[in-house]
Amino acid sequence: MNFLGNLIWFVLGGLVQGIGWFLAGLLWCITIIGIPVGLQCFKFASISFTPFGKDVRYGGGAGSFLLNIIWLIVTGIPMALVSVISGLLMCITIIGIPFGLQSFKMAKLALMPFGAEIVRR
């Protein structure tokens, strides 16, 4: 079931969100200081392409909090808005609700990516 969900997700919006995370990672990697942030973006691009069967655990300390604040100001808000709008559009139909929920998961991740860990179910 996860394979079918991931395949449909990839075609209906996962490709766009994954490319968004990938491009954000490339922009962050332009500077040496931004490379750790860019690598985090690449990790989250993989969950954007195939989110079914994966969960996100949140944690972290003061360093994660500081990076999340910088991320939120620079990149997080636009990426979260795209995910929320996508999720709302997908939730219009009953069939689209599982896909909308995955999009909302990506919106939360777009707001707080540092200290988050991707785990397989």
Rank of each mutant, 00 (worst) to 15 (best):
L67A: 05
L67E: 00
G18K: 02
I92P: 12
F99Y: 14
M90W: 08
L89S: 07
G13S: 01
G34H: 10
Q102I: 00
L39Y: 07
G18Q: 04
G34Q: 10
S83R: 14
R57P: 02
L101D: 02
L72T: 09
L81I: 15
C29M: 13
F22N: 02
W71T: 12
Q102H: 05
I85T: 11
S48Y: 02
I32Q: 03
I95Q: 13
L81A: 15
G53A: 10
V16M: 06
G18D: 02
Y58S: 15
L26F: 06
T50M: 14
F52H: 05
A24G: 00
V56I: 15
P78H: 07
I92Q: 13
G34D: 12
Q40P: 04
I35A: 10
I77L: 15
I69A: 14
I92K: 12
V16P: 00
I47P: 03
Q102S: 04
M90T: 01
S48N: 08
L27D: 01
T31S: 15
I95M: 09
N68V: 05
C41W: 05
P98R: 03
L89T: 08
T75Q: 08
G59E: 10
I77H: 12
M79V: 04
I92S: 12
S48V: 02
W28C: 11
W28N: 06
A24Q: 00
G53V: 05
I85Q: 08
A80T: 12
G18E: 04
Y58E: 14
L26V: 01
A24L: 04
V56C: 14
T93V: 13
K43G: 07
L88Q: 11
I94W: 09
G76Q: 11
G100Q: 06
I94G: 03
G61A: 03
L27M: 10
L26C: 06
I95K: 15
I47S: 05
S86M: 07
L67N: 04
G14H: 00
F44H: 12
G13W: 00
L67Q: 03
T93P: 12
G53N: 09
